[in-house]
Amino acid sequence: MIRTFAAAPIDGYTVVHDPVVGSNHLSPTPLPAGRVDLDELHVAAWPEPKLSQLNPPAPLSMCYSLIVRCNLACPQCLDDKTVRESTAEERQAMARYIAESGILGVDLSGGEPLLLRDLPDVARAIRAGGRTVVSCTTNGWHLARRAAELAPVLDGIRISLDGATEATHDHWRGDGSYSRAISGTRAAIDEGLRVQFQMVLMRDNRHEAQELLDRAAQLGVGGVTFLQMLPIGDGKSIAQQQMLTDDEATETVANLHVPDGLRLRLRTRAKADGFTVLRADGNAWRNTGGATAITVQIAVTGPQDLCLPTTESAA
């Protein structure tokens, strides 16, 4: 499949960011800088860099958590619900800063970003710079009704599932959540959006990891990312009972059979450490302490404020 990636020359390498999977790759040949259409199978075969190989002027990718509100109340949620939520005008300003920063990929998250009427405007403003690819992470509840308006302005969409079955997913997210997420998945695919499932890997749902891969393949989803639980926000209260070690998560994923054509990725806490998050109040934050805490870094007043020092694990 041909889809849009972001490319940039960095310290002698051509780095390519995948907006669906969230991974970075080294192209074997130079590519034009900016948004570029590539074969996803070719990109998947390219090696992933370590930041020790690079000297990036900005984080390669980041999350813009542009809303605090959510229609669900998941006990493993890592969002800080105490921060102020920005206005539409402030979100447009942040979008311009991201577009000018040199960051290759941004994931629009929350809270639940599909609750924002101006979500397409934010995505459009970021893409207008011509350098950045944009994805969105959603619980899928409102995706079926908004897929048509989002498809032209997003380069990928990530749907959160906490289980491969209705019983498991709804246990964590509430009645009706699974059926709404699956309906949203189908609608997004019908509109031409490339979909990635994301599961927070926990002790009580890891037994459904293989079933989730099989379900994703059946639906035509492009891949599955398993996210190690972060003991941040509401998740602190269940971390002792539910959190896997990185070694346990790695072993779980290593034993899975990956259906043909499906991308599989595990984001360990080690990889999440140092990741940049722009929060809804306009502060750029970083995951710290092995991704066990979040630290406020700086109030963002321009693109330069997003170019925080990167760490080895922030790729």
Rank of each mutant, 00 (worst) to 15 (best):
H25S: 03
W46R: 00
C77V: 04
R35E: 00
R35K: 06
W46N: 01
L41M: 09
L51P: 09
L31I: 07
P19F: 04
K50T: 15
A73Q: 06
Y13S: 06
I10Y: 07
S52A: 12
G22S: 09
P56G: 11
V43Q: 08
G12Q: 03
V43A: 08
L51V: 15
A45F: 06
P19M: 09
W46F: 03
V36N: 05
A6W: 10
D79Q: 15
N71P: 06
A44W: 04
A6Y: 07
D79L: 12
D37P: 12
Y13I: 03
S27I: 01
A44M: 05
W46M: 01
V20R: 04
D37H: 09
E48G: 10
L31F: 03
Q76N: 07
P59W: 13
P75S: 03
Q53N: 11
V68K: 06
V16N: 03
P57G: 12
A7M: 05
L72F: 10
L26Y: 03
S65Y: 13
A6D: 08
P49N: 08
P49A: 08
T29F: 02
D11S: 12
P19D: 09
E48A: 13
P47H: 02
L78N: 08
S27H: 01
H25T: 03
N24P: 05
R69Y: 05
C74K: 00
P28R: 02
N55E: 14
N24A: 15
A45K: 08
P56C: 12
D11A: 14
H25N: 02
E40K: 04
L41N: 14
A44Q: 09
P75G: 02
S52R: 10
L31W: 05
A6E: 07
H42C: 08
C63R: 12
P59A: 12
V21R: 09
N55C: 12
D79E: 14
L54I: 13
R35D: 00
P59T: 15
L31Y: 02
D18T: 05
C70A: 02
V20M: 06
Q76K: 07
S23L: 14
G12N: 03
